[in-house]
């Protein structure tokens, strides 16, 4: 009897472990530099779009992104980038090392910002992570949630 119980438990563990192992396809955002579809602020004061400069990986500060602001007519709009907060809605948490983030505004194009030293605290499938971008433009400060349509390794 005891052997049967032990064997059943160990068999179940082994079989289920074999069946659940998988991995997802790697996407390379750095190769495309695609800003994607701009996301509008709730008031319509600005739109924001992101392009990821590197392949995304967790546990490193090597991730970086380009941020572009535009108006309702998709024309470049000077804006002040105030916050860039990563969040993982499915898991209900953000990330650490927010103080390491570096924001740089392009002096020739005030609608264009670079964000570097971005830390993902864990990996995830495409759209698993989002960024809450806080910015002010046309006298209004707002937060906009932008999806990350790439896998974080």
């Amino acid at each position: 009897m005891r052997l049967i119980i032990l064997f059943s438990f160990l068999s179940a563990v082994t079989l289920s472990a074999c069946g659940s192992s998988s991995s997802s396809k790697t996407v390379s955002p750095g190769a495309t530099q695609d800003f994607g579809v701009p996301v509008a602020a709730p008031s319509g004061a600005f739109k924001v779009s992101l392009a990821w400069s590197t392949d995304l990986a967790s546990g490193t500060l090597a991730n970086s992104a380009e941020v572009r602001f535009s108006d309702a007519n998709d024309q470049a709009l000077a804006a002040q980038l105030e916050g860039f907060a990563l969040f993982m809605p499915a898991m209900g948490h953000g990330t650490i090392k927010a103080s390491e983030l570096r924001f740089t505004q392009d002096p020739k194009d005030l609608a264009h910002w670079s964000v570097s030293q971005i830390w993902f605290s864990m990996g995830g499938s495409a759209n698993e992570w989002v960024v809450d971008v806080t910015a002010s433009a046309q006298g209004q400060s707002e937060k906009v949630r932008v999806p990350i349509p790439y896998e974080v390794q």
Partner: peptide, 14 residues
């Protein structure tokens, strides 16, 4: 190992 919202196993950074 982390299990994401798609049910995929991933290396854990914890």
């Amino acid at each position: 190992q982390d299990i994401d919202s798609q049910g995929q196993l991933r290396k854990s950074d914890g």
